[in-house]
């Protein structure tokens, strides 16, 4: 202490500057540390390794009749598989793209025209649209109808009317054989 007592009165300014510098340097280093320390807490809430590695879903399409729709689970969400009849394929292809909210040709949404595969989650607020079971309301465009806020999808899963901003999402999938697919 003696040394600082002796030096501080004549060199007051120097001492002040040194303290300011120390304060700022320590503050900056401390703030960086605190900021970095927060990251593990935030990142722990991101999907964990086991969740990310969740198995892809394999589906055998052979038993699905023309006109039949089935639902499979992929990453905890429903995936709609529609074995579309000729009429539905034609209706989907013939739509004037300029009239669409989210213009996308049907050909860009399917790998084989008879199989439409989309994630069955309404792009508005995440409800599951009706239309999978025969007899359910499919809406005026023959696709799906979301009962929550009335979004209507066509036979290509594109939004035609209602509050949803985007078409039903096409998940990544590939045909592993003629009638089997792997989603994810």
């Amino acid at each position: 202490m003696a040394e600082t007592v002796a030096t501080s009165p004549p060199h007051m300014d120097e001492g002040e500057t040194r303290r300011d510098f120390l304060l700022i340097a320590t503050g900056v280093v401390g703030a960086v540390g605190a900021g970095l320390a927060v990251w593990p807490f935030i990142h722990s809430m991101n999907p964990a390794a086991d969740t990310l590695a969740l198995a892809s879903t394999g589906v055998n399409l052979a038993p699905v009749q023309v006109g039949q729709r089935i639902t499979v689970v992929w990453r905890g969400k429903p995936v709609f598989i529609d074995h579309r009849p000729e009429a539905d394929i034609k209706a989907a292809a013939d739509v004037d793209l300029s009239k669409l909210v989210d213009p996308e040709p049907d050909s860009a949404r399917v790998q084989k025209p008879e199989w439409l595969i989309v994630v069955g989650v309404c792009t508005h607020l995440g409800c599951i649209p009706l239309g999978q079971k025969s007899g359910e309301n499919r809406g005026p465009y023959g696709g799906w109808f979301c009962p929550c806020h009335g979004s209507m999808y066509d036979t290509s899963g594109r939004i035609r009317q209602g509050p949803a901003p985007k078409n039903l999402v096409v998940p990544p999938y590939q045909f592993t054989a003629d009638t089997t697919i792997k989603i994810g």
Binding site: W39, H43, S44, N46, A48, A49
Partner: peptide, 13 residues
């Protein structure tokens, strides 16, 4: 053990 192995920084927490 899932926290220790799979959760991001779970072992640290």
């Amino acid at each position: 053990e899932r926290i220790m192995r799979d959760v991001n920084y779970g072992w640290l927490l």
